[in-house]
Design a protein around this nucleic acid. Sequence first.
RNA 1: CGGGAAGUAGCGCAGCCCGGUAGCGCACCUGGUUUGGGACCAGGGGGUCGCAGGUUCGAAUCCUGUCUUCCCGACCA
Length: 491
Amino acid sequence: MSKEITSREEDYSGWYNDLVIKGSLADYSAVRGCMVIKPYGFALWENMRDALDKMFKDTGHVNAYFPLFIPKSFLSKEAAHVEGFAKECAVVTHYRLKNDPNGGGLIVDPEAKLEEELIVRPTSETIIWNTYKDWIKSYRDLPLLINQWANVVRWEMRTRLFLRTAEFLWQEGHTAHATSEEAVAEAEQMLEVYATFAEEFMALPVIRGVKTESERFAGAENTYCIEALMQDGKALQAGTSHFLGQNFAKAFDVKFLSKENKLEHVWATSWGVSTRLIGALVMAHSDDDGLVLPPRIAPLQVVIVPIYKGDEQKAQIGAKAAELIAQLKGAGIRVKYDDNENTRPGWKFAEYELKGVPVRIALGARDLQNNVVEIARRDTKEKQTISFDGLTEHVQQLLTDIQENLFKKAMHYRDAHITIVDSWDEFEKMLDEKGGFISAHWDGTAATEEAIKEKTKATIRCIPLNNKMEDGKCVLTGQPSTQRVLFARAY
RNA sequence: CGGGAAGUAGCGCAGCCCGGUAGCGCACCUGGUUUGGGACCAGGGGGUCGCAGGUUCGAAUCCUGUCUUCCCGACCA
């Protein structure tokens, strides 16, 4: 390693990039704003994806796949939707290249212009609703509960590894229902699925809430979200679930005959989480020694590093390690044995810390004689010496402890950074000095929300679900308010 | 699209002010000694200095243009 991980206080952004790149998760690519996800990072994504996919299926959803390309005319059918996405779309205008007759290599063949331009999907509502029109005729076809795992492209002005890349991987669920109530229940259910996943798998505490009108998804009636807090005090939207009302059904003319034999538009939801979750994971748990990954989704849960002198010792330790690995694997633990001769133990220790492997086991000749191993946990960096007997149970318990500890630590930090504020002076002061969420009264107008954003860069992250009603005065205007909302500077 | 900075070996950088034909660290290759917190010694390979012009006997270095990337803004369901 040529450079140490930069301290957070000096340069959070450099710290974050170092973590991602040195932790072997991803790297910049040759294409502007796009990243290469490396095998280690992709294994992490696969673990997250598999856990989410199971949760979707347990709630009655199935997977399907829709086209990457969307005819331009589709995008314009829902007014708010086109407004929200038009500014960041990649557009396919031609279908062929040819050799430049004047020399100079390949050029776009002007003869090969498309009749109608194709948009690389920034999200799939339009192409999916165009399809649903043909699939839904009767109330018997409902509900339609479909998810797709895909890539999408949004031509962002400024990008950042995982958090905002021009192309990213995600899942998008798109459901159709016979009633408004049923669709709202679906949107709320999926928000809860996301919240559960974030908390139980990612060890990331989240606040469940709804967005204000100005932060709402383009084309939605209501947007639910989970908001997480990063270690620099900035908030991150970790997932959203939208109640779309009948907006897309009307735009794409999706109607069904009800039990009462009446023709009605269907009610819709959409919901998604993306590789941005990996960014959240990195910023929520990591320290200056590298990544810290929660055991439940870590690509590797345990690494075993042998310490030996000479081939004879290596063979002896290897034999014992094989025994331990068989036990650990038998218990479903993801374990790697690193007997690479080109790197020394100290190098390996540092390397797996950078990669955030939760548990490290060191096994040397000394340990072999004493029937023990040295076991180190990544989150607290504590080491202890324990016996071979019951090692598997010990490791299982340790993985559980680490998972819980990470959640508690993040929860403690989050709770300590929700500040209740009642005056404008204090609002600005707390935002600058402490960061995190500011819980304050708001008069409910978009104008005030905008004014606060203008002054402080803080936005309303959400109105928490099950929020306590309480009379108060707007922190900026002094106008009456019925509840507090959460403000923060955000990614 | 505004403001700043940078493009020199796979990665990180020095050299540029003051022009003379390219260097350091890491990585890589060979041999040896090592191995309980990022080993050491010796030897070795690798670069049209982002691109295009110009000035000059001579350009990584000076001038002009251009492209790209990063950072800060603007933008961002």
